[in-house]
Simulated scan of single mutants.
Amino acid sequence: MTPDELRNACLAFAGAGEEFPFDEANSVFKVRGKIFAISRLSGVPLRVSLKCDPELAVQLRSTFPAITPGYHLNKRHWNTVVLDGSVPEHLVREMIEDSYDLVVAGLPKREQVKLHWVGLSRGE
């Protein structure tokens, strides 16, 4: 996954936007003001931090060495993924979607309706 593909994957969701609250090098992807992905798109190797269900986070970390506890984030709820090709791209895309869904699930119902969100894609 290239930096442009990562950016496009994060921005593909309703209401998603890219901001730079920390510095101009770190892209922060938000929905309704809440973070669901963080990446230094110019980083080598490319990495992305994503929100994750705590039980799934542990499973993913034990399966893929490129998935580690979130860097400078709550280690229980965030994973950092090194996009070096060792994690299948479809799984990275699912993780981005899951992160978005977890954030939107925590928004008020009226905000979910505005986003035309139909619920968690897996497990609801």
Rank of each mutant, 00 (worst) to 15 (best):
E5V: 05
E5Y: 01
L6M: 02
L6Y: 00
L6H: 00
R7S: 05
R7D: 02
N8W: 00
A9Y: 04
L11F: 06
L11G: 07
A12S: 15
F13L: 08
A14E: 15
A16E: 10
A16T: 10
A16Q: 11
G17Q: 13
E18S: 06
E18K: 09
E18F: 07
E19N: 08
F20R: 13
P21T: 04
F22H: 11
F22C: 05
F22R: 08
D23F: 07
D23W: 08
D23A: 08
A25D: 14
A25M: 11
V28W: 03
F29Q: 04
F29T: 00
K30M: 05
V31M: 06
V31W: 01
R32W: 08
G33Q: 04
K34S: 03
K34D: 01
K34H: 04
A37N: 03
I38T: 12
I38N: 04
L41Y: 00
S42F: 01
G43Q: 14
G43K: 05
G43L: 04
G43I: 02
V44F: 03
P45Y: 02
P45T: 11
P45G: 10
P45L: 09
R47Q: 15
V48A: 09
V48Q: 07
D53Q: 10
D53Y: 00
D53M: 00
P54M: 08
E55K: 13
E55A: 15
L56M: 13
A57K: 06
A57E: 00
A57T: 04
A57H: 04
Q59C: 11
S62M: 14
S62C: 13
F64L: 13
F64C: 13
P65N: 11
I67S: 13
T68R: 15
P69A: 14
P69F: 07
P69N: 09
P69M: 12
P69I: 10
Y71N: 07
H72A: 06
L73I: 07
K75Q: 05
K75V: 01
R76V: 12
R76L: 11
H77C: 10
H77M: 10
W78V: 07
N79H: 06
N79G: 10
N79I: 06
T80H: 05
V81M: 03
V81Y: 02
V81K: 03
L83D: 07
D84E: 05
D84P: 11
D84S: 09
G85K: 04
V87E: 03
E89I: 01
E89P: 05
H90D: 14
L91Y: 01
L91M: 12
V92P: 10
V92L: 09
V92N: 06
R93W: 07
R93V: 13
E94C: 05
E94Y: 00
I96S: 07
I96F: 02
I96C: 03
I96M: 02
E97R: 14
E97T: 08
S99F: 00
S99Y: 00
S99V: 01
S99P: 06
